[in-house]
């Protein structure tokens, strides 16, 4: 259980990298969590947990894609394998730095926080955000990209400060 708690953010991001709809991602993630719990006895504790959990996630994602063919642009299976390896190799370190995210979010201005709220808390796609704010979808996407850049810089800064102290 503890293993899963630590691995879950990486597994979640991996699923998101292929299934971008938030609520669909949530459904798949819940199924994965249950599968991890049910198949826990098969996990070999002498091996790293994350690759095992990502393997289960990969299967669930593929099952989902077979059932749902509405994803317009989906990575092929070979690319999904490459991404799974990339998550396996580097994601845990990155995920740890994201503990600073909440603090960095607090530094955004009102408009930026509103954009984040509409996109991430209300699950609105840029086109829907654009409609509410009188912007174009591309402008919203660019603005969100700038916000993520800012957040990444802020997080990086905090990681450096922590390392120095």
């Amino acid at each position: 259980m503890r293993h899963w708690t630590l691995a879950q953010p990486v597994v979640s991001a991996f699923v998101m990298s292929v299934v971008r709809d938030f609520s669909e991602r949530d459904d798949i993630l819940q199924d994965i969590a249950i599968a991890v719990l049910e198949q826990g006895a098969r996990y070999d504790a002498s091996r790293p947990f994350l690759p095992w959990a990502l393997g289960i996630a990969q299967n669930h994602v593929r099952q989902f894609l077979r059932r749902q063919r509405k994803e317009r642009l989906v990575f092929g299976m070979d690319m999904q394998d490459l991404l799974q390896t990339a998550f396996q190799e580097s994601a845990e370190g990155v995920a740890e730095t994201l503990v600073h995210l909440r603090e960095c979010l607090g530094r955004l201005d009102n408009h930026e926080q509103l954009l984040c709220e509409l996109r991430y808390a209300k699950d609105l796609k840029p086109a829907a955000v654009a409609e509410r704010l009188g912007m174009s979808a591309n402008a919203v996407s660019k603005a969100l990209q700038r916000i993520r850049d800012q957040l990444r810089a802020c997080i990086h800064h905090k990681v450096l400060l922590k390392a120095r102290s």
Partner: peptide, 8 residues
Amino acid sequence: MLLHDRLR
């Protein structure tokens, strides 16, 4: 992806 996911 990790940032996007954690933001959500």
